[in-house]
Lab assay of single mutants.
Amino acid sequence: MAAAAAAGAGPEMVRGQVFDVGPRYTNLSYIGEGAYGMVCSAYDNVNKVRVAIKKISPFEHQTYCQRTLREIKILLRFRHENIIGINDIIRAPTIEQMKDVYIVQDLMETDLYKLLKTQHLSNDHICYFLYQILRGLKYIHSANVLHRDLKPSNLLLNTTCDLKICDFGLARVADPDHDHTGFLTEYVATRWYRAPEIMLNSKGYTKSIDIWSVGCILAEMLSNRPIFPGKHYLDQLNHILGILGSPSQEDLNCIINLKARNYLLSLPHKNKVPWNRLFPNADSKALDLLDKMLTFNPHKRIEVEQALAHPYLEQYYDPSDEPIAEAPFKFDMELDDLPKEKLKELIFEETARFQPGYRS
């Protein structure tokens, strides 16, 4: 834990890192770190609560700039109880001085990944967590956004079992017609939660990839272990087919990539493993919904509104309290091709509203 900075004593240090967030945020305490930044909790002297502050230093890398800009653009436009918001952003007053960006968010005690390492969940908890994931996802999908990296560590939890989806750095506007060349190379989302079509096709992607990830998360809540822990690309596919069985001819016809289709045709026939054999203690309604989410063919996979209306979630289902976005989200430009200098300018502009004396 960093010592509390005395008023006016300059930035606090946390594990050798400068955290320049005073005077409003003090009493910093280390939480963890990701690929390009550290997260601390801090005391907000204005709202009198502890908050989470993520320090991001992305400006050396085009990919990190892209992810940072995506996350900020999306989260500043989203407003939903099951999606983490941005409360404040701290950065230098000029673009030349801006080396880091500090993002202030609600402090959540833990995440689903940490929880599943230590606790076996009751059916009631599984049901409530799944409902909140789908409630947040309904809003995301209504904005025409794909999260693309749903996994237990991106689901934040607090002691009252509130759940918030975080990390929109890989999110995209849904565009089933656009052929994202190089899709697989830039697709760094965790393999275990990846839909089979991501490994088999490169053309376009749809909201059904997020539903697949939610199915993987439900299976993990039922058993405290990942359902498809593939060691590499082909191993991942083999794990999936080992449980779902061989795809039907109709399902194979959806695979545009001939090499991928021929690979699947070359494999020995596998039978589907019954879900109640894998999860003998699970609620039968939970397994019915799991089956509809972990469907090989993305066109037959359940959609988020149908999933919310499934009998497993009937005690929570309330369409009048499951809000959607006001308007579909649009990125003005494809960020993939922009140089990091341009992305830095866009991050600077996007964060201006939090600067003292800002006038829109």
Rank of each mutant, 00 (worst) to 15 (best):
K151V: 09
K259L: 06
Y113L: 04
I53R: 00
N158F: 04
A286F: 09
R79L: 12
D149L: 03
K344W: 02
C40R: 13
I90V: 12
Y30E: 02
T351L: 07
L313I: 13
I240N: 13
I83H: 01
K117S: 05
I324T: 00
M38E: 08
W192P: 13
D124Y: 13
K259S: 05
V104L: 10
S246Q: 01
L252C: 08
L184H: 09
M108I: 15
D162C: 00
R353T: 05
E186L: 10
V214G: 12
I126K: 08
E334Q: 07
L258P: 11
A9I: 05
K330G: 07
P328G: 08
H178T: 09
R91D: 00
L146Q: 14
N271P: 02
S213M: 04
P196Q: 10
T185C: 07
C40A: 07
Q249D: 10
G215P: 06
A325C: 00
R191S: 10
N154Q: 12
M13E: 12
I209N: 13
L107N: 10
L335Y: 08
A195S: 13
H269Q: 11
P356M: 03
G16D: 00
S202G: 11
I211G: 07
N144F: 06
Y317I: 07
P339V: 10
K300C: 13
I255W: 10
P196L: 07
K207I: 09
R67T: 08
M199Y: 08
V145T: 11
K259R: 11
I53M: 14
R277M: 07
I74P: 11
I227Y: 02
I211W: 07
A189C: 07
V145Q: 01
D124L: 06
L267E: 05
L137D: 03
P229F: 01
K48P: 11
I56L: 14
P226T: 14
Y139G: 10
F329S: 03
G204Y: 03
L76W: 00
P298L: 09
C166E: 07
N224R: 08
L121Q: 14
G85P: 07
K292Y: 06
P152C: 04
A260K: 02
P93E: 09
I126W: 07
N27K: 14
E250K: 09
S41P: 00
T206M: 04
G182T: 09
S142R: 01
C216E: 09
R24S: 13
Q355I: 06
G136R: 09
L200S: 13
L335E: 00
T295F: 04
E71W: 08
I89L: 05
D337E: 15
D88I: 01
Y263Q: 04
H141F: 04
H80I: 04
I74D: 05
M13Q: 04
N238P: 09
D162H: 06
D20Y: 15
G357A: 13
A9V: 10
Y263C: 02
Q17P: 12
D111T: 06
T181F: 05
H299S: 08
K270M: 13
E345W: 10
K342R: 06
I133D: 05
Y64P: 15
L313R: 10
N82L: 02
E33F: 04
K54N: 11
G230A: 01
G215N: 11
A42M: 04
K285S: 05
L264V: 06
I255L: 13
L107I: 11
S320N: 01
L287P: 04
I243E: 01
I74A: 05
S248F: 08
P229R: 06
C161W: 00
R225D: 04
L150E: 02
H239A: 06
Q249G: 03
W192D: 04
Q236L: 14
P323V: 08
I83W: 00
H120E: 05
A6T: 13
L116V: 00
K164S: 10
N144E: 02
A42D: 00
Q66R: 13
M38Q: 15
D251K: 01
W212G: 11
F329V: 02
D235R: 08
Y187C: 08
P311A: 06
I209Q: 11
V46W: 12
M293Y: 01
M98C: 08
H80K: 02
P298A: 09
K151G: 02
L200T: 04
H147I: 03
R15D: 10
D177W: 05
R70K: 00
C166S: 15
N253M: 11
P23Q: 02
D283N: 14
F183Q: 10
R77T: 06
Y193L: 11
